[in-house]
Design a binder for these strands. Structure first.
Lengths: 343, 343
DNA sequence: CTCCGTAGTCGAAGCGCTTCGACTATGACA
DNA sequence: TGTCATAGTCGAAGCGCTTCGACTACGGAG
């Protein structure tokens, strides 16, 4: 053992009285080794506190044991979601004996080219993918094994994971129905907001309206026959428009008792408008929001919300990436069930 | 150039008509190379899109070009601060041509031992260091070059960076004085909250009270002679105690017109108590908080606050680490000026 | 009793890079 | 005009690991 340097495989081999290659095989399990030898090697490893040199390993095996995670560290992503995601990804990666290299989205395609060419990472998780994302093209060109969070315009051949927005819409309708609402509405966004995410708003609407049909399933619980009606109305962000839209909606549908709001900034104004109209939210009227949980928490009364199960998303993304690195097939598209949090 | 593998230094050397070692020297600048040769090499590098293999480089040079950043990814750290820090650290690291490996605090000392022994990183930034932190001992034992954010009980021989709490206290007093307050008070915390951070509360108090002395400096602006008085009172977290404390304070010091609150959860209750007492905050009475900016934003009226310049902290930490890796000396202790944000 | 497959182990050949020592011009100096 | 630094370049020796092919025993099949 060299004093100034670290413990090498040769040190372990010497200590265990075997060849270095044998140590390697014990550690990797790629060839069968007698239990007695394996034990001696493991003992030596433990006694010397041996950890393989990451660089040497990566050079010899063409596997770095590191994955890159590119996060939009600056801009408007919802922070708690981001943290949960990052935390979940690191934890899951460690479970697969991988480390995580953190990159910011503003390194862009050039950053991806760099990490790919330098073999510093084996794969990549790209968070917050947009419909037209230059990084997606780079990923495709580089052939770097990767998993995207979000769906680009052309997802062919890529592995994408995202929230199941149809299920989110459905969850809202279910929630309202369970509270006894017969006549419900979805207050959507001004479409401009969603241009980054194709079909995003549409899918929520689809899931919400889908509820008009009989979706009860006897085997999973009580059959819920939804006898009422559901509508979806778009809604701009500004306070005045929100107030007007809600007012019009209530006038047009006096029987309305449930509202799902898929428009983060509108939520407070919706609450105002409902109060003005004499609705008692939580009692004779129910509201649920689709968005980060803070939105539901900052108004009075606090509203239930459908949110992104970020940790689960991260686990799935990392899991998929690992399987790709092992040469296994993974589904191109994975949709994650949203979670509805009641308060 | 090998088709299936990446571009190697040999490919570049062949293309430029030089030896591989020459390419290496051009890239590292460790020996002088004629401008003409250097240019040919650089052209070849660009044409082939060459990036040195990180593993090979790390193996040969004993420098990984990666630093680890251990963040408390799960618990109660203030999220915006954490993100700013992470983002700042990555950006600054890239500026030094380093990548950042993300670790969670719950990998603990074993995680540090692992990354140190495997030479996967050259150095370490340890965020949210506590007074008794098992990771600190590990860092010391491993001899891994590192920079800590926060101060452990025994910081001897370690490089620590943190907010300058004395300056934070002073900034609050300054702010109030500038608004014309003659008689000001610091509402502190129940000491229990601060047990993680030695002297933390005391230093804020020191900075705040320090103001009683004449600190005017003619050369940097108008001489501010603070003729009034300042006191500091501790304060428990619970609403009732806060109300009582504020009430007593106002009774005892009827001339009081300025208050600094160094107690995050107490802020809303302080505002209530002041309203009850008929004080018009922002007009005849001034309040400033020491804590994350959200605290000041969630009450009415919004309050100015002294916050952690996380990005700057990250820059300094990474900068220090780089200098340590280069064998340069850095100060053991660095205190960063707080920022006061008015609203 | 011989032959062969298999489990268990070893040695050597790289992986792609950095770095050290050596070598050759080149020009400065005496 | 010979001598010496010095700048500029090359070749080779590793860095510590994985992996391939080869070798040795050993046991079961023929």
């Amino acid at each position: 053992m060299n004093a100034s340097r670290g413990v090498t495989i040769a040190d372990v081999a010497a200590r265990a009285g075997v060849a270095a290659s044998t140590v390697s095989y014990v550690l990797s399990g790629k060839r069968s080794i007698s239990p007695a030898t394996a034990q001696r090697v493991m003992d030596a490893v433990a006694e010397l506190g041996y950890h393989p040199h990451a660089g040497a390993r990566s050079l010899a095996s063409r596997r770095a044991g590191v994955i890159a995670m590119m996060l939009p560290l600056r801009d408007g992503m919802h922070l708690p979601v981001l943290m949960q995601f990052a935390s979940g990804a690191v934890t899951e990666a460690r479970r697969h004996d991988q480390d995580v290299l953190l990159m910011t989205a503003d390194e862009g395609p050039a950053g991806l080219a760099r990490v790919a060419a330098s073999s510093i990472v084996d794969g990549l998780i790209l968070m917050d993918v947009e419909v037209r994302d230059p990084r997606v093209e780079a990923v495709r060109r580089l052939g770097l094994p990767s998993v995207l969070i979000g769906f680009p315009a052309d997802a062919a051949g890529l592995t994408c994971v995202d929230l199941d927005f149809t299920a989110a819409g459905r969850a809202c309708a279910d929630y309202l129905a369970e509270r006894g609402c017969r006549d419900i509405a979805l207050l959507g966004a001004s479409e401009a907001v969603y241009e980054r995410r194709t079909g995003f708003a549409e899918r929520v609407r689809g899931g919400f309206l889908d509820h008009r049909e009989d979706r009860g399933r006897a085997e999973t619980g009580p059959v819920r026959r939804f006898a009422g009606s559901a509508v979806a109305v778009p809604c701009p962000d500004d306070p005045v428009s929100v107030q007007r839209t809600v007012k019009e909606l209530l006038t047009a549908r006096p029987e309305l008792t449930g509202l799902a709001v898929h428009n983060e900034p509108a939520v407070p104004h919706v609450m105002h408008a409902l109060a003005d109209a004499g609705k008692l939210v939580g009692e004779d009227f129910h509201v649920v929001v689709i968005g980060p949980d803070e939105v539901g928490e900052r108004v009075h009364p606090r509203l239930p919300s459908v949110l992104v199960p970020a940790e689960r998303l991260a686990e799935i993304a990392v899991g998929h990436l690992m399987r790709k690195l092992d040469g296994d097939d993974v589904p191109e598209s994975t949709l994650v069930e949203p979670r509805l949090t009641t308060r």
